[in-house]
Amino acid sequence: MPELPAVERARKLIHENFLGKTITQVVTIEDAIVYHECQNTHFEELVGKKLVDTGRRGKIFYLLMDEGPNPVLHLGMTGSVRIKGEPGLEYMDFSTEDDNWPPKYWKFVIRFDDDRELAFTDARRLGRIRLVDGDVLIQPPISELGFDPILSMPTLELFSDLIARRNCPIKALLLDQSFSAGVGNWIADEILYQARVHPAQRTNTLTPAEIKALYEQTQFIIKTAVKFNADGNQFPVDWLYHFRWGRGRKKDRGVEMPDGSSVVFETVGGRTSAIVPSVQKLHGANTSEKSAIKKEIVEDTGEASLRSALKKRTKSAVTDGDVNDAAVKRPKTGSRIKDAKPVIVDDPTLDIRPKRGKRVIAEGNVNNDDSGVARRRSARVAAANGKQR
């Protein structure tokens, strides 16, 4: 999916090739889904208008004309722009290469006064095309966006405050465009990996150090990706980006980082997340203790399932003589012990005998602690054993 760096690349492509040019022709195709709050025929109003600037906020970019209205564009999952006679843009999930013109899945083609043509394409129809009169920055959809990590990154103090207001998995917050405009799935995973934060970590359990790391990595990851014009081949070699795309491929069932650390895939915030468990660990009061223990047992033993991991840990504990509470279930204090014999205590003042069918309290079956319950239980044992005499 085109995220902020890819959208910035599309904006720059238009800016560098058509700035100052006048539109001489517009051809559109009807699509009631992609054209949002306008019809394709409304684009005919752009004829005779000059492109005076371009801009972007998050994943949305726009074309400013010398007279309104102004096209506001969102690429969605598979949207892109093409210039006639030039190669299509490449994305990790898809390519826009096409020898035909107009290209496949085109929605509009604009011809400028230098006879060059610009096309907008969208295979899955999840993109959006709008025409907005007036200042596009103070109207939806741009007015509904959060901070842009390139254009309007808040201070660390404000960033921390924005996180503190929420109580949700940090991955879900990063993907919320009303919080951080432009962050998509792979960028969120990269930020969390580089910051050493688990995507399911609740925002209200993040430490100040983790928040600072998230703040710094959000800027670094996006600025670096923009610097390399969204070309993943030029991204730093230690980025998770290079190893997160193998899920589902038979030859890549076991995905690993260069240092051998495993990459696992879990659904967090409704999206598939690439995680490196060796450095991204859950913590805090809101973390499910049971799930954390299970995960730790599986990782420690190297087994694929909790059942086989518990068997391995139990066997190891018995062999080594170090019985682990998580592996071996201990008998409950005060439970019936078959054939237990009372211990005789020399105390003639006691005249209490255990009745038939009642529980016999035997020596060694009293929890040796300092609680009142333990002291009263000890007294009953002494009394019972004394009467046996």
Rank of each mutant, 00 (worst) to 15 (best):
G88D: 10
L75A: 05
G127M: 04
Q25G: 10
L89Q: 12
C38W: 13
P87H: 12
L13Q: 11
A123K: 10
T41M: 10
R128S: 14
P102V: 09
P71T: 05
T96R: 02
V52K: 13
H36Y: 14
E97S: 13
E86L: 14
P103F: 11
Y105A: 08
H74W: 05
R82Y: 05
M65G: 09
Q25I: 03
L126Q: 04
R82Q: 09
R130G: 13
I33N: 15
W106S: 07
L13M: 11
K107T: 03
Y91T: 05
L73H: 03
L126C: 00
T96G: 03
F61M: 00
L131H: 08
R124I: 00
R124F: 05
N70M: 09
D113C: 00
Y35R: 09
P69K: 02
N100G: 12
D99R: 07
V47W: 12
L64K: 13
P87M: 11
V132F: 13
R128D: 12
F108P: 11
Q25C: 11
V52R: 13
L75Y: 04
L89K: 09
L63G: 13
D133F: 07
M77Q: 04
E67V: 04
D133P: 03
D98W: 07
T54P: 08
D53S: 13
E90S: 13
Y105S: 10
R124L: 03
D114F: 06
I60A: 08
T22W: 09
K84G: 06
D133R: 05
E86H: 15
V81W: 12
A119M: 04
F18P: 00
A119K: 02
P102M: 10
M77N: 05
L51Y: 08
R124E: 04
A32D: 15
V132T: 14
K21M: 01
T54K: 06
D93W: 11
A123E: 09
L63K: 12
E30N: 15
D66H: 01
L13S: 11
I129T: 06
L75H: 05
K49V: 05
M92P: 03
G127A: 06
N40S: 15
H36R: 15
I33Y: 15
H42E: 15
R128G: 12
I83H: 00
R125Y: 05
M77K: 02
W106E: 07
R56T: 02
H36F: 14
K21F: 06
R128L: 10
K84N: 11
G79N: 02
G58W: 00
G76I: 00
K59E: 00
T121G: 03
C38F: 13
A119E: 04
R128P: 10
V26H: 12
V34F: 15
H36Q: 14
D113P: 01
L73N: 03
G76K: 01
P103I: 09
W101M: 04
R82D: 02
F94K: 04
G20V: 03
K59D: 00
E44F: 14
N70F: 10
C38S: 13
R111C: 02
E44R: 15
E67L: 05
E37W: 10
H15R: 09
V34I: 15
R128I: 07
E45P: 07
F94C: 02
T96D: 06
F120W: 04
D66P: 01
L73Q: 03
Y105T: 00
M65E: 09
T78G: 04
A32Y: 15
Y35S: 11
F120S: 02
I83D: 01
I60K: 07
V132S: 12
D31W: 05
